[in-house]
Amino acid sequence: MNVEWRDFLERAGAHWDSDSVIHFGQLDAESNAALRGDVCCDLSHLGLIAVHGPDAERFLQGQLTCDVRQVTPEHSLIGAHCNPKGRAVADFRLFQREDAYFLELPRTMVDPLLLRLCKYLLRAKAVLENASDALARIGVAGPNAASLLESAMGAVPATVNSVIAADNMIVIRLPGLQPRFELHGAARELGAIWNALARDLVPVGTESWRLLDILAGIPTIYPATMEAFVPQMINLQQLDGISFQKGCYTGQEIVARTHHLGKLKRRMYLARVDSATPPRPGDPLFSPQADASQSAGQLADACRHPNGGYAVLAVALIECAEQGELRLGDAGGPVLQLEPLPYEFDGAA
């Protein structure tokens, strides 16, 4: 990772596990602050793929579920890349900076996605590279996040997915129960913003930011869940992550058929669960209402909740989730308690 940025965070009190900040010395207090207060978080656990060149837009348009033409210096989108069977290999946030597109996703997914995308590059005049250490990045969230950032930077994006550029940085507004923002830039400039906000924000570790993503209903594909879900199963259509008008892309036929036939049998739910061991992405779900020949579903994401137990995103059979019960693991596992997501579903879902 960026050495200058890591040195800055260590001086700020960061405790590390590989490329992720575990905490800044007060794990429980930081988790509570993420739910109720104003926080800032290092996002080095996320990596970046840069795509540039004359054919960059055309190439990405033929590979991603979102409409790349809508991604501009002022607007970003969530999207996914699928295999030919319409299963999501990875999902990400796509944004522009200067003359390049950037795909932001977990560092563990950067190399697998680069490998897949390069197979489709062929003669396209585009360059794909791992740019994870080219920029530093932080997240800022909380009821006062917008006003605090505006005081420090002069302006903030007004709507979800919108982007502004300021002082060699870009700021992206994210979905969330409270205002949330990502900042990308050079370590020195980003460190100055961190210091300017330090008196009003609580620094938190990676797990706290993942909790905010989960509560916002934002899915993340990990190595354990690669090619497990059609994009609609992880609610990407509710997050503007799928375009049904853009034309062909890898896996588009299956994604479009699922949409137009309205036969989605699984979707993603937010839930809480009390478990003796930490649940993990890919863990199986059981339901007594499920046919013995099929799985009731699996976890897309999970992390500890400061109020007890774990917050999870579970991709499950709709019938079992809404008319039966879901258990983690097997028939003797803990029951998932469903909670409302911050967005609604259309009739087909």
Rank of each mutant, 00 (worst) to 15 (best):
Q298V: 10
I170Q: 01
H184Q: 07
T258I: 12
A302R: 00
E10S: 14
A314D: 02
H15K: 10
N195H: 15
P219G: 03
S18T: 09
L103H: 06
G332P: 11
C66D: 04
E30P: 12
L239G: 06
A271V: 09
V230P: 03
E182G: 06
S76Q: 05
T72L: 09
M1T: 10
Q289H: 15
M233Y: 05
E98W: 11
L236S: 05
R199E: 10
A34R: 03
P281R: 08
L113I: 01
K125N: 07
A300V: 15
E182V: 04
V163M: 04
A271G: 09
A155P: 08
Q337G: 14
F8D: 05
I234Y: 10
E325N: 06
V156D: 01
A314N: 09
R188C: 07
W16N: 02
L236R: 05
H81G: 02
P219E: 06
Y120L: 01
A124G: 10
N195Y: 07
F345Q: 08
T250D: 02
A165M: 07
A80T: 09
L117R: 01
I138G: 07
L264K: 06
E207P: 15
A300D: 09
E129W: 13
G191Q: 01
L113G: 02
L328S: 09
S76H: 00
E182T: 05
V68N: 00
I214P: 05
L148W: 04
L328G: 01
G262R: 08
V202I: 13
A165E: 04
A158E: 12
L313C: 04
A276I: 13
E344Q: 11
L103W: 04
L183N: 00
G62Y: 13
G332Q: 12
R58Y: 05
L177H: 04
G329H: 10
H184F: 15
A296R: 11
G308D: 03
N168L: 11
M226G: 13
A314E: 06
D213I: 02
S287P: 14
Q232C: 11
K119A: 14
P219M: 06
S295K: 07
R304S: 07
E207Q: 15
G53E: 02
M233F: 15
T258W: 14
P179A: 03
R267W: 08
N168A: 15
A216Q: 02
P278S: 07
P342I: 06
A276H: 03
V51W: 07
G37V: 04
F24N: 03
S162N: 01
L46I: 12
L115P: 02
V335P: 03
D7T: 15
R199L: 11
L105I: 10
L103N: 03
I170P: 05
